[in-house]
């Protein structure tokens, strides 16, 4: 059984607000040993993107969109049984949404994805204050900090947060992600941000994140 086979059924259940049916589908996929990456990207992310399109086209109401979000958030922990039992390396990542960014499912998934690759993945969730993040990086000392922005108008705060983390923690690697960056142009384009802050790397996809985690830099422990 793969995600493709159950996607339609899952999306219909999500739109209908049928949490039990959604849960059954996810459990079925887990029991069948489905690749976790596919559950995250093709099922959770794919269905939430569809929910966004349906809302945009006024096919579903804002209430249905909220319900789908809360169902998705409640299902993420189902995967944990297969995540946390894995052997871990002593590496950690701290992922956060920039201030005034409330789209937090992506950052939870990214933190989980680090777990999947044997790292400790910590997530601070939505709307993280700049000072709070800078302090948390100091306290927790992660190898990597991940910043997320979904809305284009949050690109300036992403840039401010990046500057604060880079200034206070010049030795920490910083990853940038989220759909806002696909709109970034000029000073907020991923390339311009990477150039201004050489410790920052824009990660455009899960595949790029996998390649980053598996890169010699982290495998060889430099």
């Amino acid at each position: 059984m793969n995600v493709h086979d159950v996607f339609r059924e899952y999306l219909d259940a999500l739109v209908a607000g049928d949490r039990a049916a959604c849960q059954r589908i996810v459990e079925g996929l887990l029991d069948a040993g489905t690749d976790l990456k596919s559950i995250y990207v093709d099922l959770f992310q794919g269905s939430m993107y569809r929910i966004g399109e349906l809302w945009e086209r006024n096919v579903i109401s804002v209430a249905v969109e909220h319900m789908a979000t809360s169902i998705t958030e409640s299902l993420l922990p189902l995967v944990y049984g297969r995540l946390f039992g894995r052997p871990h390396v002593e590496r950690s990542a701290l992922i956060a949404c920039v201030p005034s960014e409330f789209h937090q499912i992506g950052v939870h998934i990214i933190a989980d994805f680090f777990e999947l690759h044997g790292w400790h993945g910590h997530c601070l969730g939505a709307n993280t204050p700049v000072d709070g993040l800078v302090a948390a990086v100091g306290d927790m000392g992660p190898d990597v900090v991940g910043l997320s922005a979904s809305l284009a108008y949050n690109l300036p705060v992403l840039s401010d947060m990046l500057e604060a983390v880079a200034t206070h923690h010049p030795g920490t690697a910083i990853l940038l992600g989220g759909r806002a960056l696909t709109f970034g142009q000029g000073e907020f384009s991923p390339a311009a941000l990477e150039q201004r802050f050489p410790q920052a790397t824009y990660v455009a996809s899960i595949e790029a994140l996998e390649a980053y985690i598996e890169s010699p830099r982290w495998r060889n422990g430099t």
């Binding site: 945009e56 086209r57 006024n58 284009a152 690109l155 709109f183 142009q185």
Partner: peptide, 19 residues
């Protein structure tokens, strides 16, 4: 704040409102 990406955002808003 978004300058060059603004047009894309406005076109998105057209779709949202037109629907």
């Amino acid at each position: 704040h978004v300058h060059a990406g603004f047009l894309e955002q406005v076109r998105w808003l057209v779709g949202l409102r037109a629907a």
